[in-house]
Design a protein around this nucleic acid. Structure first.
Length: 290
DNA sequence: AGTTGTGTTGAAGA
DNA sequence: ATCTTCAACACAAC
């Protein structure tokens, strides 16, 4: 699931590879992925635009293009971007280079392809076709409700436990749900919510407003620490996420609780439990998370 | 072989 | 306002 660390990894790699490149053609077999404008117009408009910047906001990938346009990509659950070269053989696209692009089935769900003037291609592989792709005028996008409603970036230097406290106090929902609310903090999903709460020794069931000053401080530092470690590990590939080159991240190897029901807590040895909170699985240690 | 679990977001319903 | 449910979609595991 691409959350902040996964999207950050993709954005950093894109910056190294596609700056100053121009889109020369696109293809899709799933026009519904393009939410705005409708596919024929999207295709006509993006051809000839140059990539001048690539940024991340929450879980959103924002390509800054020439003509003051932006290309927005949200990968949702099973989407990931790949950079490479493919050839169409029958119904499916086959990578021209061997390795994970060819061998890993996760990298074979190509539903949208961009050709660049460098000869490289950017492909969106998305088993469930939930991803969102939009081409908009930058001014309209940055002033949109969608963009303005995103909460602060947890890894920005200015994000402090004071701000976190202000944003979660008086909120009655469970802290796990608050952490995943993109309008409270941007970029955290199920994996990192569970990992952060374990690290901070806070139960996912606690009403957000019940956290003490010190617990908010612990939560804030756990958040920064876990997310930074995950970025350094190039994200988590528990299931579908892959890097631009089609490889798995490494954070799943060092995660402590997410999808580890029945295993031992690394801190106290108690068995990790799994329980639904608002329809989502929460993984936690019932002994050391209070 | 049908059922369930998977998680992000936004919309709809309570 | 705040919360819950569902839909979008497709596959693996049971």
């Amino acid at each position: 699931m691409p959350e902040l660390p996964e999207v950050e990894t993709i954005v950093r790699d894109l910056r190294l590879k596609v700056l100053q490149r121009t889109f020369i053609d696109i293809w899709t077999d799933a026009e519904k992925l393009i939410k705005f404008p409708a596919f024929p117009k999207f295709k006509k408009e993006i051809i000839g635009l140059k990539v001048e910047g690539v940024n991340r906001r929450g879980k959103n990938i924002i390509f800054e293009l020439s003509e003051r346009r932006i290309l927005l990509v949200h990968l949702k659950m099973t989407g990931h971007l790949l950079l490479g070269k493919w050839r169409k053989t029958g119904a499916l696209w086959r990578s021209e280079v061997s390795g994970p692009m060819q061998d890993d089935p996760t990298n074979r769900f190509l539903h949208l392809i961009f050709w660049l003037d460098s000869g490289q291609m950017i492909a969106l592989s998305d088993m469930r076709k939930f991803a969102k792709v939009e081409l908009r005028k930058a001014s309209e996008f940055y002033s949109s409700k969608y963009f303005k409603d995103l909460g602060p970036e947890p890894l920005s230097k200015s994000f402090s436990s004071k701000e976190l406290g202000e944003r979660i106090q008086k909120r009655k929902r469970k802290i796990k749900q608050i952490l995943m609310d993109q309008s409270v903090i941007a970029g955290i999903g199920n994996i990192y919510a569970d990992e952060i709460l374990w690290q901070a020794k806070i139960s996912p069931f606690r009403p957000a407003e019940s956290l003490s000053f010190w617990e908010v401080e612990d939560l804030c530092s756990a958040m920064k620490e876990v997310l930074k470690k995950a970025v350094a590990a190039k994200g988590s590939s528990v299931s579908d996420y892959r890097t631009l080159s089609g490889e798995k991240g490494k954070f799943q190897e060092i995660r402590k609780v997410y999808r580890k029901e029945g295993e031992r807590c690394p801190k106290c040895g108690e068995k990790i439990k799994r329980q639904k909170i608002g329809g989502r699985s929460a993984h936690f240690c019932p002994k050391c998370q209070k």
